[in-house]
Amino acid sequence: MSQPESAIADAQAGGPSDGTPAKGQEPLAELAARHGLRRAIARPSLPAYLRQLWERRHFVMTYATSRNVSKYSNSALGQLWQVLTPLLNAAIYYLMFGLILGTSKGIENYPAFLITGMFVFTYTQRAVTGGAKSISGNLSLIRALHFPRAALPLAYTIQEFQQLMISMGVLVVLVLVTGEPITWLWLLVPVALLLQTMFNIGASLVLARVGATARDLNQLLPFIMRTWLYASGVFFSIGDKVGSAENIPGWVADVMYFNPAAAYIELMRDLLMTSHAPRPYIWSVCVFWALFTLIGGFWYFWRAEEKYGRG
């Protein structure tokens, strides 16, 4: 504000005498810089971005809860579906793979094995699928309000996390019913879920950015997810089917166990089932994927922050 009055008068769009801008008017960019105005679209630094996201934590939580509530609000049974859906899923998987197809050969306590795998995989699958739609499906929200865009994929993952809490309740009951004892290892279940949640957030951030520009991703994703499901050892034991097979080299099983979904499934089975033999290095693999995906995913998503909402 220390500029001479004449400069400000020049900068005014309309001169008082003839109504046309004065000649030799300074460029608008310089006028803006002189008054300390900043570009409306500028990506904040990563620490500032994380701080903004933290300030919006209430929005993220409320948005996630609201989506969960509105999902079943039109049905007669209402929120009861949050429990019924995983229960019915478990029943169908057991009927299909346990009784009809008889995949259970050689696996002790196959119902627990199958249902644990299915629930853990479903969590990742739904979080990633939701994340892929979180930007492209919310363009009107992005174009109307200002908030760190990472709040959306984050909210979608938290929505799935809330659903998972209910599924885990169902899972624990089912595992106990199938005869597994409660052990000290159960105390580590929250840690395993935390690691998986970190991975899911990172993965959904990556897919959110990809899905924001590649519209065909949502069409393709179900097929990718199904392939991932079959490769993750949900219905069968990777160690038995691949690791012990004579015509398949031994490293194939190791590679398959490095698959994050397989790793989190194996970890949860180790914790919940005494009959399940723990894999070596399983914790390292799970921690690696959690940190790598979360940090990498955040960085990757933040890099395009100012571009979301354009296409």
Partner: peptide
């Protein structure tokens, strides 16, 4: 102006 649509060219400066 609200900073919700990225400009193709040019700029919006705000306080």
């Amino acid at each position: 102006i609200a900073g919700l649509l990225p400009p193709h060219s040019g700029a919006v400066y705000t306080d």
